[in-house]
Design a protein around this nucleic acid. Structure first.
Lengths: 353, 353
DNA sequence: TTGTAGGCGTTATCAC
DNA sequence: GTGATAACGCCTACAA
């Protein structure tokens, strides 16, 4: 029978504080070499049944936890999946994040977030820094990276996923949907409902907003015989908010009194527009149509309920991580584009009754 | 004059892909030792002016970036500040996150997020894992850790900040406010406005929700002569949502028809309650008072505007990180409690007109 | 299936 | 002020 020497556990108050339990400790415990223990942990099938079990037991009793820094240094690959998004607070991205964290949870990987604040230079800088960590993978929002960013991503020795959009030539993998098509469909819906003078309300106007804007215009152009449709649009670079939606709505009606419907860049604006319409005594739906984008939870609960275009944000995060993991597991290779689609959800706010 | 040999930059297509620029490369370049370069980077004052400048130049031209894994391994301290929160999507926490990322941005530190999903066991597990990374600091939501979690945090060799609440004995540092007091004040506001039968609506019911619940009860107890106030309350463990706010509101009115005001656990519920009230044809304010919690942006933009209790979420994140950084810089020491306060914001929804 | 040797890139320690 | 040397804990490559 083997006598187990008292291990120096971090919780021991004796000796140097917190001496770490290492692979060597486990190895000594079971009378094997460190590399064998290492293998038992990462490639159990390479180690004999008996040894494997004794190692597992020792790991348990000693409370061994691998040191990620040492792993990263030795293997030249960290367990960090870098994620670059323009905003942490925006509901859209926090849903994506939820998907990311859900999918990465339970795996040996960690998400490391970078906030680009909607600025390409910041993104470039962050890509550089993230890459210096030898990430296991990189997930970046959008397809409008700077040339330098693209070059770095292309050379990166890890899977790269661009998310939230579709595009011509992804750096590596791509998960998203067509903002242009979605916006065009939403606008067509307004026209189909009989609204004659739909307007566009946009805030922040990042690349994705611009593409939605383009979709709105395309729908109008297609509908107007001579392509002479007046441009009822109000956009701002200000960050979007419910309050701003109201402000823009009021301003819009002042400038284009004939407006009878608005397609908003996102749901916050739409909600604000609806409140503003109600303040103005307008009957939302019959008198003025309102359509948002993203279909946040509040849209289906509002009074009246608000039409929107559902986007699959959580799924975006999940899919992106899964693609990274699959690539790392050698299950997939080569470029890959996943269209997550979108879905128009008509509700009372665009029902003319 | 020194001739600079062509460095092996990662972007070189020659040789092994991506050979990293190391401290040694920089050292060779300037004719110094690695340790000196290391010092020049971390403690410039320990290196002579001239050398320091040549090193800076070499770092620049070579494009040297430190390897965090190697740094962590050698220094036994990573640049990771671990953050444990119950939810990534909840607006409350995403605001905190924004504060965290803002404050950590530009520093050499990184935030690593752990999603506890409102479960103490998950939190415990995550604390264990995070600690194995030798984090630079740890920020955890709430004060209701398991005993094991508390023990680990207490022994952690890094600054620890509990956030979002106030409490008796913090593990180390604490940044938050009193949910109980805030809720009590909100309830007193309802009573002061003349509402006779205020009710409580609660979802999720995590520890902080429970304390708000307690605040509601305390206010009622203080107001009712015999302490015989009937308990008009409806709570659920379901995650909160706008839709749920409506459902609960309807159910509440069914069960307690006399209800003339509701204090909601959070703003989502309040917004949902307001929509439901409007659907029921009630005049919000005069006929039924509605008060939320947190004062999300939408509250001031809604129609009518909704009373809420403002909490300083972004500031919470900022303060937590600053405390960690200060401690690491040796600027502060010892336990420390920061009360970030709260503020009642009365609006139309509790104005009986 | 298991082990040996060496190195990953940086910092701590102790000299000079 | 600067440098040699030895870790830090683990993994890759190769050998047995």
């Amino acid at each position: 029978m083997i006598v187990f020497p008292m291990p120096k556990h971090p919780s021991d108050k004796t000796g140097k504080p917190g001496r770490r339990v290492t692979l060597a400790d486990v190895a000594r415990e079971v009378g094997a070499s460190t590399i064998t223990v290492s293998r038992a942990l990462r490639r159990p099938e390479m180690v004999s049944e008996g040894l494997r079990q004794r190692i597992a037991a020792a790991v348990e009793t000693l409370g061994y936890l691998p040191d990620p820094a040492a792993q990263a240094l030795a293997s030249r690959r960290s367990n960090v999946i870098g994620v670059l998004i323009p905003s942490v607070t925006n509901n859209v991205f926090s849903d994506v994040l939820a998907g990311l964290y859900d999918t990465v949870g339970g795996t040996a990987f960690n998400v490391q977030l970078g906030n680009t604040r909607y600025r390409a230079e910041v993104e470039e800088e962050l890509i550089r820094i993230f890459l210096s960590q030898r990430p296991a993978g990189l997930i970046v929002a959008g397809i409008d990276q700077t040339p330098a960013s693209r070059a770095m991503l292309a050379q990166a020795e890890c899977p790269v996923v661009q998310i939230m959009e579709l595009g011509e030539d992804p750096v590596d993998m791509l998960v998203g949907f067509s903002h242009r098509d979605a916006a065009q469909a939403a606008t067509e819906h307004l026209l189909a409902q009989g609204y004659r003078a739909p307007a566009f309300l946009g805030a922040r106007m990042d690349p994705r907003s611009e593409r939605r804007h383009a979709g709105f215009r395309a729908a109008l152009a297609a509908a107007s015989p001579e392509g002479a449709a007046p441009a009822r649009e109000l956009t701002t670079t200000e960050p979007s908010s419910v309050r701003l939606g109201g402000v823009l709505f009021d301003r819009l009606r002042e400038r284009f009194p004939e407006t009878d419907a608005v397609f908003c860049n996102n749901d916050d604006l739409a909600l604000g527009a609806q409140f503003a319409a109600q303040r103005a005594g307008l009957k939302v739906g019959p008198e003025v149509g309102i359509c948002g984008f993203n279909d946040l939870e509040v849209m289906s609960a509002a009074h009246p309920t608000i039409t929107s275009v559902r986007t699959f944000r959580r799924e975006t995060g999940e899919t992106a991580v899964r693609k990274v993991l699959a690539r790392l597991a050698g299950e997939e290779a080569g470029p890959d584009v996943t269209d997550l689609q979108w879905k128009l959800i008509p509700r009372s706010s665009t029902d003319r009754g």
